[in-house]
């Protein structure tokens, strides 16, 4: 099946800088896709290309079947966008800004907009000039979700929002998903991505280095095993020799290991030691993220590491 949001070999160069390198994305209708990456990885470049604001050096981006560059208007009829920096018109009030944006689009679910204004606890009578960053961000969110557009492209949409408003945002995304809207969510808030996204792509220095459901990403990343001992366990050489095991931290009676693959050999070796408690947990998204970001060479090759996920 062809996704509603697709990029094929999408590449962007700014002079000598390769900002985006052959990005292939295929996002299905109704999917919530998390797009992660450190600062300068190329997330905003990707969004600019998806919106046809910058022109791809190579490759194409398709939004609901429309070429992002050559048919921007048709593409944008299906799209709503929230920018990471809420640069709005300072002399307009919130209500006037929402009105202007609704006029530009030509349609708006006004009842839902009013509901969102209440949900985000937003005062539309205030001039944009007098609003904090978080409050200006609310205008963008309300305007975008009230369009009921098929595709929502959100660039760090919760930057500047307080935790209560982040919760309101999550509720709103969940509603959008229930309506089969597609959400492209570029974010630094890993808990938000972990909670909301069906699939996650990780970008580093312009390349998609991994992609998949959270479960698939976890599969590639080491589990953490924490062991406490009743007595000093003595030398741990035989643990180190097990394939896929790395000792992350050790002190007297406490040991932290990272393990990839099967746990059988590790459990056998541990059974010969005075183990008091054993705790094993899956990596959090944060750990996955950090493993991918450290750039220590332990990163999966994009061609090998990328999963096809749920699409």
């Amino acid at each position: 099946m062809t996704g509603i949001l697709q990029t094929i070999g999408l590449t962007k160069r700014y002079g000598a800088t390769l900002a985006l390198d052959h990005l292939d994305l295929d996002i299905a209708r109704g999917e919530v896709y998390g797009f992660l990456g450190p600062n300068g990885a190329g997330k905003t470049t990707t969004i600019r290309l998806l919106l046809g604001l910058h022109r791809a050096t190579a490759g194409t981006a398709l939004i609901a079947g429309h070429d992002a560059w050559s048919e921007p208007v048709a593409a944008h009829r299906q799209t709503a966008y929230v920018a990471s920096e809420p640069t709005l018109w300072p002399s307009l009030t919130g209500a006037e800004t929402l009105e202007y944006l609704a006029n530009l689009r030509g349609s708006c679910d006004r009842a839902y907009r009013d509901q969102l204004i209440t949900r985000f606890d937003f005062d539309p009578a205030k001039k944009v000039r007098a609003l904090s960053k978080g409050n200006r961000q609310k205008i963008q969110l309300i305007a975008a979700f009230a369009t009921r557009a098929e595709i929502l492209i959100l660039d760090e949409p919760t930057s500047g929002l307080d935790p209560l408003m982040e919760a309101a945002f999550r509720t709103t995304v969940t509603e959008a998903r229930a309506r089969e809207q597609t959400v492209f969510l570029s974010s630094h808030v890993l808990s938000e991505v972990e909670l909301l996204c069906d699939r996650i792509g990780i970008l580093r220095t312009g390349k998609l280095i991994d992609q998949g459901t959270l479960a698939q990403l976890r599969h590639l990343t080491a589990r953490t095993v924490e062991v406490t001992f009743a007595d000093s366990p003595g030398p741990l050489e035989n643990l180190r020799d097990i394939e896929g095991v790395e000792i992350a931290a050790v002190n007297d009676r406490h040991l932290e290991l990272q393990i990839r693959g099967d746990m059988g050999l590790l459990l056998q070796a541990l059974s010969r030691l005075p183990v008091k408690t054993l705790d094993s947990r899956e990596p959090s998204l944060e750990e996955i993220f950090l493993v991918h970001y450290r750039g220590n060479g332990a990163v999966a090759d994009p061609a090998v590491g990328a999963h096809n996920g749920s699409s």
Binding site: R48, L51, G52, L53, P72, V73, A74, H76, R77, T79, Y81, A83, T87, L88, L101, L104, R105, G106, Q140, I153
Partner: peptide, 8 residues
């Protein structure tokens, strides 16, 4: 940028 992300 924000304006041209609208159908315009």
């Amino acid at each position: 940028e924000f304006l041209l992300a609208q159908p315009l």
